[in-house]
Simulated scan of single mutants.
Amino acid sequence: MGAILASSCCVVPLFLVTLGASGAWIGSLSALDPYKGYFALFTFVCLGFGYRQAFPRREVDCEDASSCATPASRRITKSVLIVATVLVAASLTIDWWAPLFY
């Protein structure tokens, strides 16, 4: 069962290609395009909550055994949040910079 689930990441796309669903066809789908603003707003709200948790205004007391007590854990959390913000910004502005590459 584990082997079947592990290979599903390769089998499902192969099955879709045999049915004629290629990357070019999937790229032309625009059914969710009218909702892009709502998805962006939801993403910014989630990022805002993430920044509020990662960068508190005052120092929060942590228990000794908690994950927030270790500086490496806090540094990794902040780094991942910043990388996620850069990726979100890149994906939301792709209409502006993507034509520069073709």
Rank of each mutant, 00 (worst) to 15 (best):
A40N: 02
A24V: 10
T85M: 04
C46S: 11
R58W: 01
A24Q: 13
V45C: 06
T18L: 14
A65L: 05
D64Y: 09
R75F: 05
C46A: 13
C68M: 02
E63H: 06
R52Q: 13
A40E: 04
I82Y: 14
A21S: 07
F42D: 01
G23Y: 11
A72R: 03
R57D: 10
I76V: 12
R57M: 09
G27T: 02
A84I: 02
G37E: 07
P71I: 08
E59L: 07
F49K: 06
R58M: 04
R58H: 06
A54C: 02
F39N: 00
V45D: 06
F55Y: 04
T18C: 08
C46D: 12
A31K: 12
L19D: 04
V45M: 05
R52H: 14
T77D: 06
F39H: 03
S28Q: 15
G37Y: 08
T43I: 02
E59V: 03
V83S: 14
A21H: 15
R52Y: 15
T18N: 10
R74N: 01
A69G: 10
P56I: 01
F49G: 02
S22C: 09
D61T: 11
G27E: 09
A21K: 14
L81T: 02
G48Q: 04
I82V: 15
V45R: 09
F42K: 13
I82Q: 09
V45A: 10
A84D: 04
I82H: 14
I26G: 01
L19Q: 13
K36P: 01
G20W: 15
V83R: 13
T18D: 10
G50Y: 07
A84K: 10
G48C: 04
D61I: 09
A65D: 12
A65S: 09
A69Q: 06
C68N: 03
F44I: 07
T85L: 10
